[in-house]
């Protein structure tokens, strides 16, 4: 029935569209039973319907091999939209790819029923369906990956902006509480915002608090020293505070030379020193020392 090369798939897709859609949707809902909360049945039906329409049109155009061609643009668009929305909702890659793969069963069942006894034809048509859907599945995963990467990138950026506030503790005293690991990119941001703040406020002392920095290795220490050196060039003294006992041990074991940078165990100590240096003192109201 198919030796002429014309595929039965377009006919089947048009003829049994409603049946395939029902089967497929039901199967998807079974597969994603755990996700009932995030994925509504109406959404699944709508997405599946859109995909089937685009798929039928692309197959109907007669090109069953070149999935990168413009005939398949609509299919790829629908898939990309589905994939992105699922990536955002926290689906796993396989759950996302199952969207396409789960179409196989209903499509192949119809195919077998339609073609009947011609095993050669069933095999060859089955092969075509498999190839197409496999490649579409891979495409879904690719888009899914891209969607996740975008999310990660955005979060990184937000983290970068969030985690480097420069706060003014007192007249002429700035504090820079660092949270999280210091890498080169972050050091650059930290350094720039600190120096800008020094220029803006005319501060003479800047306290860099590293209580929130989980580990200090040679690289982090080097970044800290760079920041201190730059601040010194601008005419501001730096105090590094918030050095935990373990970190003090690590610094010495690594042989990191903090040079003549003033270090204090806590932010409070550093603040007291800063006040003292700027000629101020904090006294108890009752006059007790």
């Amino acid at each position: 029935m198919t030796p002429t090369g014309t595929s039965k798939i377009p006919d089947i897709l048009t003829k049994y569209r409603a049946d395939i859609l029902t089967d497929w949707t039901r199967q998807q809902l079974e597969n994603t039973a755990m996700r009932r909360g995030v994925l509504r049945e109406s959404d699944v039906t709508e997405q599946s319907g859109e995909f089937l329409n685009a798929f039928a049109e692309a197959v109907g155009a007669g090109n069953l091999t070149d999935l990168r061609g413009e005939k398949w643009d609509a299919v790829r668009e629908v898939l990309a939209a589905v994939s992105r929305s699922r990536a955002k909702k926290g689906f796993t890659p396989s759950e996302t790819a199952m969207f396409v793969f789960s179409l196989k069963q209903s499509l192949l069942t119809r195919l077998r029923a339609e073609i009947g006894d011609d095993t050669d034809a069933v095999a060859s048509e089955g092969w075509t369906v498999n190839t197409i859907l496999d490649r579409l599945g891979l495409f879904t995963t690719e888009i899914y990956q891209k969607g996740r990467e975008e999310v990660i990138l955005r979060q990184q950026q937000e983290l970068m902006e969030l985690s480097t506030p420069v706060v003014s503790l007192w007249e002429n005293v700035l504090a820079l509480p660092l949270i999280g690991t210091l890498d080169s990119a972050r050091t650059q941001v930290v350094m720039e915002s600190l120096l800008q703040a020094i220029v803006k406020s005319g501060a003479a002392i800047a306290i860099i608090d590293i209580t929130g920095v989980p580990t200090v290795d040679t690289l982090v220490a080097q970044h800290l020293l760079k920041t201190v050196a730059a601040a010194r060039l601008m005419g501001a003294d730096c105090i590094i505070s918030g050095i935990r006992p373990q970190i003090a041990q690590t610094i010495v074991h690594l042989g990191v030379d903090l040079g003549d940078v003033i270090t204090k165990a806590t932010l409070a100590d550093a603040f007291a020193l800063a006040l003292q240096r700027s000629g101020m003192m904090v006294a108890s109201v009752k006059g007790r020392s």
């Binding site: 120096l195 730059a230 005419g235």
Partner: peptide
């Protein structure tokens, strides 16, 4: 005494 260094200049010198 060197005074009034710009942030960008300070960063450049340190680098």
């Amino acid at each position: 005494v060197v005074v009034g260094m710009q942030p960008s200049v300070a960063i450049t010198l340190v680098e």
